[in-house]
C-alpha cells in the first residue's frame, strides 16, 4: 500500500518526465531547426534565469499577478456570497456578468492601455478582471447551495444576518470558493502572459515573443517550460493549501473540474 501512495505522489512527476521524453523523441525525429529538443531547451533555462533583467521582468510579472489575484479574491468572494444568498443581488448582477463572461479579458489590454498607460496599473487591472468572474461564480454557487435549515439554526441561536454570512455561509461554501480560487489562480497566470504577449512591453510573455522574433528558438521553448512550470507549481501549491483548509468536506477530485 505504501508503495502505491508513493506511486500516486510520483505519478505527476513521471508524467512530466514522460512528456519531456515524448518531446525529445519528436524533436529528434522531426530534426527541425525551429523545434529544439527538450534537453537543449532545459539547458537554456539557466541563462534566462541568470540574466538579471529577465529575472526582474519575470518577478515584476509575478508581483502584478499576485496583486491582481489578491484584490480580485477579496472583492469577488463577498460579492458572490451576497449573490448566492439574495435573489435581488443575484438578478442585479447576473446579466452584466453574462455579457462580460465571453469577452477575453486580456483583449481589453489595448483599450485600458489607452486610458491608463502601459504601467503596472493596466496590467494588474486586466488580471483582476480575469480572476474575478470564476471566483464570483463559484462563491455564488457555493452560497446558493448552503442548506437553508443551517441558516435557520443560526438565526435561532441569535446570529445577525452579517454574522450568518460570515460564520455559516462562508465556511459552508468554502470548498466551492476554493475551487473558484484555484481556477482563478491559473487564469491569473494565463491573463498575465497573454496581456504581456499583446502589450509587448515587458514581462515573461514579452521575453517569449522577443525570442521568437529573434529566432532564439531554445529560449522560446525554455520560457515555455518556465511558464508551464509556474502553472503546475502554483496549482499544486494551492491544492495543498486547499486540502488543509477543507479537510472536513467530502473528498473531491484531485484534478480541477472547473475552468469557467
Amino acid at each position: 500500500m505504501r508503495s502505491r501512495v508513493l506511486f500516486a505522489r510520483l505519478a505527476p512527476l513521471l508524467a512530466c518526465v514522460g512528456l519531456l521524453a515524448v518531446w525529445q523523441v519528436a524533436a529528434l525525429t522531426l530534426n527541425n531547426d525551429s523545434f529544439p529538443t527538450a534537453l537543449d531547451s532545459i539547458r537554456a533555462i539557466p541563462s534566462i534565469l541568470g540574466d538579471k533583467e529577465a529575472l526582474i521582468n519575470i518577478l515584476a510579472s509575478l508581483r502584478r499577478m499576485a496583486i491582481g489575484f489578491g484584490t480580485a479574491v477579496l472583492v469577488s468572494i463577498p460579492l458572490g456570497l451576497l449573490m448566492g444568498r439574495s435573489r435581488s443581488v443575484a438578478s442585479f448582477f447576473n446579466p452584466l456578468l453574462m455579457v462580460i463572461y465571453p469577452v477575453p479579458k486580456a483583449a481589453l489590454m489595448p483599450i485600458i492601455m489607452l486610458w491608463l498607460g502601459v504601467g503596472d496599473l493596466s496590467k494588474t487591472l486586466v488580471i483582476f478582471l480575469g480572476v474575478s468572474l470564476p471566483v464570483i461564480y463559484h462563491s455564488f454557487e457555493g452560497a446558493k447551495a448552503v442548506e437553508e435549515k443551517m441558516l435557520w439554526s443560526g438565526a435561532a441561536m441569535g446570529l445577525s444576518a452579517v454574522e450568518r454570512l460570515v460564520r455559516i455561509v462562508l465556511p459552508a461554501a468554502l470548498p466551492e470558493i476554493l475551487t473558484g480560487c484555484r481556477t482563478g489562480l491559473v487564469l491569473a497566470l494565463i491573463t498575465m502572459i497573454t496581456s504581456e504577449m499583446i502589450a509587448r512591453q515587458s514581462g515573461a510573455g514579452n521575453i517569449l515573443f522577443n525570442a521568437l522574433d529573434m529566432g532564439q528558438y531554445d529560449t522560446v521553448f525554455a520560457m515555455i517550460i518556465i511558464i508551464g512550470g509556474m502553472g503546475i507549481f502554483l496549482d499544486a501549491a494551492f491544492e495543498r493549501m486547499r486540502e488543509r483548509l477543507v479537510r472536513w468536506s467530502e473528498p473531491q477530485f484531485d484534478i480541477p473540474l472547473s475552468f469557467s
Binding site: 514522460g18 494565463i190 522560446v220
Partner: peptide, 25 residues
C-alpha cells in the same frame, strides 16, 4: 492510470504559453 497524471500536469499549464511553439511547428 496513464491519463490522470498527464492531465494533472497539463490542465493547469497555461496553454497560451504553447502558442509560440505551435507557431513554429
Amino acid at each position: 492510470a496513464a491519463v490522470r497524471p498527464v492531465v494533472r500536469v497539463l490542465a493547469p499549464l497555461p496553454k497560451v504559453a504553447l502558442y509560440p511553439a505551435l507557431l513554429l511547428l
